[in-house]
Amino acid sequence: MTLRLGDTAPDFTQDSTDGPIHFHEWIGDSWAVLFSHPKDFTPVCTTELGLVSRLKPEFEKRNVKVIALSVDDVASHKGWAGDIEETQGAALNFPILADPDRKVSDLYDMIHPNANNTLTVRSVFVIDPNKKLRLTLTYPASTGRNFDELLRVIDSLQLTDYHSVATPANWTDGGDCVIVPSLQDPEVLKEKFPKGYTVLKPYLRMTPQPNR
């Protein structure tokens, strides 16, 4: 199944380390990050799950729930959680979906046969409260993900949902933003951007971050 930005994230019910997860119900009015792992008891995944456990307060500040997936079963996940806490100094504090039947992996196209026909690649899906898919990232199994980048993108998505701006290259929270080209009325611009803006080109106008 090919998923594209703006699609409704497929719903499912699947067991997890926190019990059965009814995905859309679990998301509720929050944003969500679903990210997959090739297999339990693997080194790169262990570092990722430990890091996300430490970063959970940052996700919560942004009204984001995180949920992982691995193709192994719940008993295996729970055994792995002990290793994660021991080696990463952080107890697992979010659910890991069990997907031995590959149901969720197939729904979200997480298995890429030319890379490996049984294990998931490192997929990332950011889903908004309307259950719409807002970001997809796919990493090879050998490369750990950059979760600072993921938080940066979530900051951008949430900012641009509520203000008439886009974020430029390498933007981070607090940086100047781009006014969307569709906004042209001078009075509307004055009202929306009381901090002012700089015109570099008619289509390239920079303004301080509106919600700062």
Rank of each mutant, 00 (worst) to 15 (best):
M1V: 11
T2L: 10
L3I: 11
L5Y: 14
D7W: 11
P10L: 07
P20K: 15
H22Q: 13
E25S: 12
V33T: 11
L34S: 05
L34N: 12
H37Y: 04
D40L: 00
T42F: 09
C45S: 13
T47D: 03
L49N: 11
G50C: 12
L51H: 06
S53C: 13
R54Y: 03
K56A: 14
P57T: 00
K61Q: 11
R62H: 15
V64H: 11
K65M: 06
K65R: 15
V66T: 15
L69M: 14
V71Q: 05
V74Q: 04
K78P: 00
W80D: 08
D83G: 02
I84S: 13
T87W: 04
G89W: 08
A90H: 10
A91K: 15
L92F: 04
I96T: 13
A98W: 06
L107M: 15
I111W: 02
I111A: 02
N117V: 00
R122E: 10
R122Q: 04
S123Q: 01
S123Y: 00
S123R: 05
F125M: 11
F125W: 15
V126Q: 05
K132A: 10
L133H: 10
L133E: 06
P140D: 08
S142L: 10
N146P: 01
F147Q: 08
V153S: 08
V153N: 01
V153W: 02
S156Q: 05
S156W: 04
Q158P: 06
L159R: 14
L159F: 14
T160Q: 12
Y162E: 13
H163Q: 12
V165D: 04
T167K: 01
A169P: 02
D173P: 00
D173V: 10
G174W: 06
G175P: 04
G175F: 01
P186G: 10
P186M: 00
E187L: 15
E187Q: 15
F193V: 07
V199Q: 11
K201M: 10
P202F: 09
M206Y: 12
N211C: 11
R212S: 13
